[in-house]
């Protein structure tokens, strides 16, 4: 609409006999181009999303016709301790993973911003994991975490006389081990964004603060952090959604016992994947998807709201 208004209106007669005005034709062109992605998205994104809500009230194994069963899938889900375990795992990834990764990313970005020596090289090093295929990386870490003598970390621990850690084979350590990999993988991206945010803060503010005698800590608290807020909001939302949808790392690091041991690392997305494509219980999987969708929606809205209020 703004495009139409922005264009000065030209007399229709100028366009040599065409019946449509320039303005209308332009609008048609614009909508013509826009229609394609909109149509595409409606068919491959919005329609299946909406259809998932319908499917969540059915019993469907992909082969028979879906049978309407009301809220039975939801009742089954909320009564299933396994679902709640997965639910807790998912939130563990979110609640522990997001703050740790953001604090780490900010700290690194903050100091990296001041480093001049080999700056680009170090930045590239941090960014590398982000562009590496998640599955390849997960497999490398999976081998790092092996018991000695094959696992690098445990071999090192053994050499300096410390006890072995059962990383991926322990119900206590498996989730943190996988989370560490996920944090490491996303760190590069967050550092780059934080650094862009830091660079965007005008130097004059810092100069003024220094003249007024504000210390480094004061500058950080009163100038850098508040002015970085748009960047932080973006990264919090982005990282949260990432952790809520975690799948690649978990699946690839636990392929023998997906989400194990004893379901201690299984996130919601992996549960959905197994329900849908291993047990072919599409209706139940759709119900789980609806729950994930709702969580994502609530978490995103909540964060946007909280972060905006404090401005």
């Amino acid at each position: 609409m703004t495009i139409e208004e922005a264009e000065p209106v030209r007399p229709a007669a100028r366009s040599g006999g065409a019946r449509l005005s320039m303005r209308t034709r332009r609008a048609l062109w614009v909508w013509g181009f826009l229609a394609l992605p909109i149509l595409f998205y409606s068919v491959i994104r919005f329609y299946p999303t909406l259809d998932a809500f319908r499917l969540s009230f059915t019993d469907w194994d992909l082969m028979s016709t879906p049978e309407f069963i009301g809220v039975e899938n939801y009742a089954r889900m909320f009564g299933d301790p396994h679902f709640w375990q997965v639910f807790r795992n998912t939130f563990a990834y979110l609640i522990i993973g997001t703050p740790i990764s953001l604090v780490l990313a900010f700290t690194i970005a903050f100091f990296l911003d001041r480093v001049r020596f080999a700056h680009t090289f170090i930045r590239a090093l941090y960014f590398l994991p982000f562009i590496t295929t998640a599955s390849a990386m997960a497999w490398v870490w999976r081998w790092f975490y092996q018991p000695a003598p094959t696992g690098a970390i445990n071999s090192f621990l053994g050499q300096i006389g410390l006890t072995q850690i059962d990383f991926l084979k322990s119900t206590t350590w498996a989730l943190p081990s996988i989370m560490a990999t996920a944090i490491w993988a996303g760190l590069g991206f967050q550092i780059i964004i934080f650094m862009a945010g830091l660079r965007a803060i005008p130097q004059t503010y810092y100069e003024a603060a220094r003249i007024d005698g504000v210390g480094e800590w004061g500058i950080l608290r009163k100038i850098t952090l508040p002015l970085l807020k748009p960047t932080t909001v973006f990264l919090v939302v982005f990282a949260s959604i990432g952790f809520l949808r975690i799948f690649d790392q978990v699946y690839n690091m636990t392929t023998n016992d997906p989400g194990g041991p004893l379901g201690s690392t299984k996130p919601l997305v992996l549960l959905i994947y197994q329900t849908a494509f291993s047990s072919y219980d599409m209706g139940y999987a759709a119900a789980q998807t609806v729950v994930l969708f709702t969580i994502l929606l609530i978490v995103s809205l909540l964060q946007l709201w909280i972060m905006r209020d404090r401005a």
């Binding site: 999976r142 081998w143 092996q146 018991p147 094959t150 991926l168 084979k169 023998n256």
Partner: peptide, 8 residues
């Protein structure tokens, strides 16, 4: 032996 030795 132990479960997970050499992964598989």
């Amino acid at each position: 032996g132990t479960a997970g030795f050499m992964d598989e």
